[in-house]
C-alpha cells in the first residue's frame, strides 16, 4: 500500500490518509480481512502525529471501510457493495458539481451540459 502525504495540498493529513486507504480498498489492492498497520506504527513510519492517524482510522471505521478488533488491530471490513457504491456516487457527484460550477461561470446552459454528458457517457 502506498500513502503519499503532501504538506502543501491544503487538505488535512488525516483526510489524505483516509482517501488513499479507501481507494486502495475500492481498487481491491487491500483485501477484505487484511490487517492495517497499527495507528502508532503508521504515525511513526509517516513521521506524523498519532492523533492524526487516529483520526484517519476513526473516520475509516465510521465510514465502514475498516473494523477495529480490540487488542488485535484494524482490519479491512467485509465488502459492502451498497456502501462502496454510495462512496463512488459521492465522488461522481462532487466532480459533476465542479463541472456545473464551471459551466455556470461560462454561461453554458443546462441543455448544452446535458448533451455533453450524454455524448460522453455513450462514447
Amino acid at each position: 500500500m502506498n500513502l503519499i502525504i503532501s504538506n502543501s495540498s491544503g487538505k488535512p493529513i488525516y483526510e489524505q490518509i483516509t482517501v488513499q486507504i479507501k481507494n486502495s480498498i475500492l481498487s481491491g489492492e487491500l483485501q477484505e480481512g487484511e490487517m492495517l498497520p497499527s495507528m502508532r506504527a503508521l504515525a511513526r513510519d509517516l513521521h506524523i502525529s498519532v492523533i492524526t492517524t487516529k483520526r484517519a482510522y476513526e473516520d475509516l471505521e465510521r465510514d465502514g471501510f475498516v473494523v477495529t478488533v480490540a487488542g488485535k488491530g484494524c482490519f479491512v471490513a467485509p465488502r459492502n457493495l451498497e456502501l462502496m457504491r454510495e462512496e463512488q456516487r459521492k465522488k461522481v457527484e462532487e466532480m459533476l458539481e465542479k463541472a456545473v460550477e464551471q459551466a455556470k461561470a461560462a454561461s453554458i446552459t443546462l441543455e448544452e451540459l446535458r448533451e455533453m454528458l450524454v455524448l460522453l457517457y455513450e462514447d
Binding site: 502508532r40 506504527a41 504515525a43 511513526r44 513521521h47 502525529s49 498519532v50
Partner: peptide, 15 residues
C-alpha cells in the same frame, strides 16, 4: 531534528 523527531514517535509507540 528529523532524526530526533522520529525518536519521539518511536518512544510513544507503546501507547
Amino acid at each position: 531534528r528529523a532524526e530526533i523527531l522520529d525518536l519521539f514517535l518511536e518512544f510513544i509507540a507503546d501507547g
